[in-house]
Amino acid sequence: MSDAPTSPNTEAQTRVRFSPRRVWTLAMATVTQLVRMKILAFLVVFCLLAVGAGFAFSVINPEQQLNLLKSVTLGSLQIFSIVIGVVSTALLLPKDMEDRTLYTILSKPVPRFDYLLGKLIGVLLLIGGGLIVMDAVLSLILWLRQSMLFEDAVARMQMEKLDSPEAVAQVREIVARQGLTWNLHWAVWAIFLKATVVTTVALLLSSIASSTLFTIVITFCITIIGHGEALIREFFFQPNLSGMASRAATLVLAVICPDLAQFDIVDSVVSGEIVPWGAVYDMTGIAALYVTVYLFVTHLLFVEKEL
């Protein structure tokens, strides 16, 4: 130990500024914690599911098989990302408070905003990492399956003497459109964006909630309403809507909840639509806006929270 405390005074006098390094430290601690809680065991389940969905149903036609593989795996990706986002966010903040870990962190020169952002980024890194791994697994299986199915189909057509160049071209076209394309990764990106928005909502709620269960239940409610927000909004924008009460009720719901259906491009991607850049920009932009505003609101609520 040094002979005299050397903590420089000048440091103490200056304002503590936002520090990306500190946020990163907090984020990495969150990731380590979650990883060591074996939360990523889900990945193994996912891989089994992907292999199962890819190879188990060989009775149906090639296009159906590829479609099924994509629907099942992308569906489970959505469930994974949202459940992990909500549950880990809802657990971490109250746990830090209960264990007094929060006291030791905030009694260091750490602004509360840095702490919040660190937690959020940590959870998002975990979800993002998980999605990347699962995307890679899905891509691999899809590619394998695609080549196998195409060869099978052509072989069968040859056997039945139906292998005209046009028919082969059509099979190739169908399999290619249903197989591995960039669109698949954009669908995964959209899933990530949706999970990001939901996680931020969970963070906001956990900064005011008194229990983990409350945060989880309310976040899932908002998630469900968020998927129907477009309907509520369109109902509100109808010109000849009668009744102030119903108008006010729809307005409140539409104002509070984010529109999560905006990120539901998975179905279109599964059916083989091409994702244009405009759609990627739109989704990314609106997600960034939600996250910024919700994080700011969370900060307002958390900065004065009595611990």
Partner: peptide, 26 residues
């Protein structure tokens, strides 16, 4: 001399809470 409401005041203080718990996976 630095008000406690300022984060900067925490540069010169170390705190040990009662029955501390840390991230048990670290």
């Amino acid at each position: 001399g630095v008000p406690s409401t300022e984060v900067a005041s925490r540069h010169s203080v170390g705190f040990l809470p009662e029955n501390p718990y840390f991230y048990k996976h670290l």
